[in-house]
Design a protein around this nucleic acid. Sequence first.
DNA 1: ACATTGTAGATCAGTTATATCCACAAATCA
DNA 2: TGATTTGTGGATATAACTGATCTACAATGT
Lengths: 133, 133
Amino acid sequence: MKYSKATNYALHTMLFLVAAPPDKPVGVQQLAEQQRVSPTYLSKILTKLVKAGMIESASGANGGYRLKRNSKEISFLDIIHAIEGTASLFDCSLDHGPECPIQQVVLLAEEKMEEHLRNQTMAELAQKMKMSL
Amino acid sequence: MKYSKATNYALHTMLFLVAAPPDKPVGVQQLAEQQRVSPTYLSKILTKLVKAGMIESASGANGGYRLKRNSKEISFLDIIHAIEGTASLFDCSLDHGPECPIQQVVLLAEEKMEEHLRNQTMAELAQKMKMSL
DNA sequence: ACATTGTAGATCAGTTATATCCACAAATCA
DNA sequence: TGATTTGTGGATATAACTGATCTACAATGT
Ligand code: SF4
Ligand code: SF4
């Protein structure tokens, strides 16, 4: 059970875009070099973030990716869900109803994790980064 | 990102063994039928639990698996770790030190989940099951 | 027009998860 | 002892998923 590398790349890219000046888009070439990953593969991942409405892309010369204006409230959980999907950590084929103790425990544990990821927004992340400079 | 089916089988088996009378071992045949899984495969999974010291096995006629005497304090997390391993949910190849905001957020989120799983013991689970009868 | 940059689809290699088969070891019982 | 039951371990097969590449194409700016 592990977060995929794709999620890793997405988080790092968002981290970078939050810190970058919002006027000039950043090309996938540059982003890919920083993370040592192929540009076309990274592009595929970032397209998911575009479709999820977190960033926007521009083709052509001086194109690239940039944060959407109102995306300071995007959370870690939003990014992870955009890449990994929103399926539950635990799925049992036979559903014996809501009083099943296994489901109760495991799903509540997952909710605890998601709650923490939901409370960490890009805005707070940017704040943290400024402080650590 | 999902818990494996093996973890699912392990949890269900433990749930059953906690509820079963502790004197007579339960054969893998019976356990496998309940969960609709092949006996040899389930055996492989249960052997991990044996090696982790949670249950014990007995060969020969009337053999099978049973809880170890002092295993009421085994937690969900123990079982999950025995099957899935204890590796972190998130691993970045390049470690930029402990002040990295991504690691801080994601690892703390994982800790929240594990804390909840650690607090759910087999003893409490047995209690819950009695109440729901 | 032409160069630049993102998008989409096919495809592929590597890894992991799931499962099966079989030979063997250990325990019980007649 | 010998036969039967039951778990163990190794090799192997299969399917699914992940990570990655290639290529043709669309969109944009000069
Ligand atoms: S016992 Fe709970 S976890 Fe297991 S199959 Fe039934 S509902 Fe699902
Ligand atoms: S920025 Fe953080 S998460 Fe990313 S590679 Fe560095 S230490 Fe790891």
